[in-house]
Design a protein around this nucleic acid. Structure first.
Lengths: 290, 290
DNA sequence: ACAATTGTGAAAAATTTATCACAATGCGAC
DNA sequence: GTCGCATTGTGATAAATTTTTCACAATTGT
């Protein structure tokens, strides 16, 4: 029994950065339906991942296994170790609608995205990101692109209540260089960039990086080129039955971060919320309870 | 040979009585560490169960599989399906983090919100809403408030690709009356209003309603006062362990609508996407490939 | 244009599977 | 006890499949 604590999935994930394109493709495929996909034949795994047979063979050896069957044996050991209970049936989400209704199909996809995203996120990276974003001594810049600026703004609006000294930058606006005038070493940039990755966002990140700022990147599974500059990279699954990608998982991640940061700095946050309420009362922006 | 409902384990158990000594021994061994033990080699399974190779081969055929690999393939399919059942199996979402970590607690809450929201949504109302929003003959107004304008804009940006003749209105801007100058009977308003409900949004909805426009309201479980004016009301669960409410469910709903509408009008949408791609190419806004 | 990566097609090696005839075993009936 | 019968194991072997490894071509990124 070689590996006491680390599962093969974790082992693959931790090596993900050092992998090349085809290897990463293969890794993704293995993790996608783990561990079932790894328990078929080598050939099936290769074609399922869309890579060649030698690529699989090479990868398996890179992972430290002498042969593919040996690799499979490890997978089976892991599977054996996990105490398995009978499988509950899949439930329909909108029970009033048939399984094939888009409401159910789309929700299925999003839940699956959430599962995969959370499954591969590093809690330490997440915690570090929250600590950086919640650090009032570091000016905060939140950057989004053509679509993602809506997500960026969502984060911005909430962070605005939690802490001072932050800026919402739209990389699609040609005025963003002005926003970076004061950016300096140690500042924190939260950058949203999902496909199709935007040139402006990359350039902005390069400048920020050049000035020594910390970059936290929120991207998709194919990872924006910004990730090479990023200190922390949070990747999301975004594939759904639609012509566009889904931001629901990213929204979940953003809100979880807000929740975590607000808890870190609860005293200050609470005071600021109270002040805000007072001002709202005076402006009569909201209705009094109904 | 596909069994829709019965797992192989159940199938074996139901046959247990009619089995002979060696077969029962084998069956027990398979069920003992199911399904891992069945995914090794035939020989290993035989010796692990303490029976001979031909016994295993005979048994597999008795179960209705032509070959042993075929039997294994079925086991793998089952395994694959069990991993895809997220609710049942996953006690924790981010397995690398403890159950009490905010990543897991928050995700639990959001999944529960999704379940409740989808459970009470009326698919017909949803379909009618999609039909109205996708109807190009009806000018479309998308309205959001202080926070929700980010969601409104997200919907707006995607609808913009699908159809012409739409407007994004921010009820917090004091210029919104200008946007309503042309609003007339039969126009469609999608109004986002979650607590705390905003006076401006209500006033805006009242004016739109007074002019005979259709109002589709996206709100929370306590329902914005706008619901009295709304033709269709889509309510979401939004409670999470945070000082703020969650928009993740609303995001899911929006994206599902986009997907449904895009499918309704696929021909036109496809053309518009292609045109858009051309223009992007010319402006070099996005990176080529990867 | 170069270097690194990846794919192709093939063939050899290794393993696994399927099946055979026959021997051994167990078990109930007489 | 032993006969008859069904079940199971043995050991061997052929067939089928899978794995491993080539050399070289194609592709990709720099």
């Amino acid at each position: 029994m070689h590996r006491e604590t680390e599962t093969i999935a974790e082992q693959i994930q931790s090596r993900m950065d050092g992998l090349t394109r085809a290897e990463r493709q293969l890794a993704m495929s293995i993790l996608q339906t783990y561990p079932a996909s790894g328990l078929g034949t080598l050939t099936a795994l290769a074609s399922g991942a869309g890579v060649s047979v030698p690529t699989v063979a090479r990868m398996v050896q890179k992972l430290g296994y002498k042969t593919f069957p040996e690799f499979q044996a490890s997978l089976r050991e892991e599977l054996k170790a996990s105490v398995k209970t009978p499988i509950a049936k899949h439930e329909t989400w909108a029970e009033a609608a048939p399984q094939e209704h888009i409401l159910n199909r789309f929700t299925d996809a999003v839940i699956e995205n959430i599962r995969l995203t959370l499954g591969q996120i590093d809690p330490n990276a997440f915690d570090r990101a929250c600590a950086l974003i919640g650090d009032v001594d570091r000016p905060l810049y939140i950057v989004g692109g053509r679509i993602t600026h809506t997500l960026a703004e969502y984060l911005y609006l909430h962070m605005q209540v939690i802490r001072p000294n932050l800026t919402h930058v739209r990389s699609t606006s040609n005025t963003w260089p002005h926003d970076l005038l004061n950016a300096k070493e140690g500042d924190v940039f939260v950058v949203f960039d999902v496909r199709r990755y935007e040139n402006n966002t990359l350039k902005l990140a390069e400048i920020a990086h050049g000035r020594g700022a910390k970059i936290i990147l929120v991207t998709d599974q194919w990872r924006s080129p910004v990730h090479q500059l990023a200190d922390i990279c949070l990747t999301n699954r975004i594939v759904v039955p639609s012509a566009w990608d889904s931001s629901a998982t990213i929204m979940l991640l953003i809100e979880t971060m807000i929740s975590a940061i607000q808890t870190q700095n609860w005293d200050r946050t609470k005071r600021r919320i109270e002040d805000l309420e007072d001002m709202f009362d005076q402006t009569k922006l909201f209705r009094k309870f109904t």
